[in-house]
Amino acid sequence: MSAKLKDRIATFVIIAFSALIIALLVGMLGYILVKGISHIDWHFLTAEPETIKAGGGIGPELFNSVYLLILTLIITIPLGIGAGIYMAEYAKEGRITVSIRLVVEVLSSFPSIVVGLFGLLVLVNTFNFGFSVLSGALVLTIFNMPLMVRVTEQAFRNVPREQKEAGLAMGLSRWKIITSILLPVALPAIITGTILAAGRIFGEAAALLFTAGLTTPKLDFTDWNPTSLHSPINPLRPAETLSVHIWKVNSEGLSPDAAEIAAGSSAVLVLMVLIFNLLARWAGRLLYRKFTSIK
């Protein structure tokens, strides 16, 4: 077989695989959006869900998902960035570094249902946090933190070594080099990675079944006292998220329009994750330009 023919075949196979992946993605997205988007309107996005009657919405679930995400990020961003900087800039290569990296890898690939059960036993029961936003956020931290550590470490390692050398030769302290020279270059990648990871935890369901719970108390959006049960920002109240809601409606929904609600919720979920991805790219580019003064 001539080299040219081989090359043609290889190219064809690669293009065919790529096309297959794109077709899968477009097909799935298209199906979810076509089935669901007609159901999305203002009422659907804001109204309370109904158990028996038709016409329920997903207002509280949407709020819960966003709130849970924010709480998780508040916990994971400092931890993940701190550990990532340690791994990239301070840790000496050796047995400890290798084992930390291994732990981080294992942590991120844990089956979510197992982590959920762990959360149920430890957070919900033993620590007595109950089915709550807090339990959910802590469980999501287990998934999200390893990603944050890896994203931060990679972002720092991708900054050219010469940048650090230049800083050292100027007599800057290590901390100053990290915060003023490396971080601005690494930050766009960290932000992009954070938002992408946020998309992943936004869609998480299995781990939240046992931790954030399957119900939501009636929320009163005028009550901002974090200790009151009906306050939306109370971290110790149960909070059914959008993806958990999809699971619940599908498996035990009694309302006649359960299928439509599930389809609509799925479309909202997919759209939100899509928005996260676009936001990540946009924010990354914007920040890179701002910090490096590249027009």
């Binding site: 050219p160 010469e162 940048q163 050398e165 230049a166 800083g167 050292l168 030769a169 100027m170 007599g171 800057l172 302290s173 003023s180 020279i181 601005p184 270059v185 910090f291 490096t292 003064s293």
Partner: peptide, 28 residues
């Protein structure tokens, strides 16, 4: 860190900071 303030260094490959021209010089 004090020692290196008295000794400047320039490498084979230019390594300006990813900042503006002004910020590169004013940084130190």
């Amino acid at each position: 860190t004090v020692l290196r303030q008295n000794i400047g260094m320039v490498w084979q490959r230019p390594n300006p900071f990813y900042k503006s021209i002004y910020a590169n010089i004013a940084f130190g």
